[in-house]
Design a protein around this nucleic acid. Sequence first.
DNA 1: TTACTATATACGCATATCCGGATATAAAAA
DNA 2: TTTTTATATCCGGATATGCGTATATAGTAA
Lengths: 127, 127
Amino acid sequence: MMQAAASAAHARLDPARFFRLLGEETRLRAAVLLHQQGELCVCELTEALGVSQPKMSRHLGHLRDVGLVETRRSGQWIHYRLRNDLPAWAHDLLTGVARDLADEPPFSGDTPRVRRAIARHRSECEQ
Amino acid sequence: MMQAAASAAHARLDPARFFRLLGEETRLRAAVLLHQQGELCVCELTEALGVSQPKMSRHLGHLRDVGLVETRRSGQWIHYRLRNDLPAWAHDLLTGVARDLADEPPFSGDTPRVRRAIARHRSECEQ
DNA sequence: TTACTATATACGCATATCCGGATATAAAAA
DNA sequence: TTTTTATATCCGGATATGCGTATATAGTAA
């Protein structure tokens, strides 16, 4: 366990595709939360956003296919985080997105929700 | 002539829709140019981006339907510009987008192209 | 009026995207 | 081993999106 994982990346990360990724609300909210929180497992995101598990997994898979996020397995959990080797424009845009949307619904409500999800998950799971 | 025009706005401007708008390259390049140049007519954008007239018009129509841009008719030309009453998050995001993409292709090449298109159009048309 | 220019829209079609539900995979626990 | 938990993926089907071509609309000029 604790293995870093690369991705297949079928689709290149150009600006238009980057914005198409952010053009679906579940992915957008997840991207903002990952920028805020650094690393989250699928179950924490699923609970914080109130979406079904297949839906969450599918959208995280899209983010990974385009190279926006990478994954790390730790036991039965898979942790997602933004890649730190993104192009400068993508890194800067993400920072702006997270800042400019932080106080807008539904993003403003996602932050406390993910904090509760993290607290509960990590206390129940001895990490 | 010189009449301000409002739009029907069938679709509300939420963050996900905003990013979906920017998720198509022609619209993204047009939005960046409008942010840079302030106001452009359809023929200037069409020439600068090298796309067909119906395609340019259709994509500008999408930007207008969602309320990102507004139009002003002046004779036979229709000038598009970003609305100045956008939500703060949309205004701030657009500023960041224009800044972070300015030096990336194809946006970096669009700037001189639109300048030439503006110069030619406005000299040929006595404005 | 007619002709010309600029812009918008309609049509038909191809492809992309999204969803819910079922199922597959993999690790952990019993 | 079996069971449970976490995550990923497959299957249909519905809807959205984008394109080229043709045409409509509106203003200008002759």
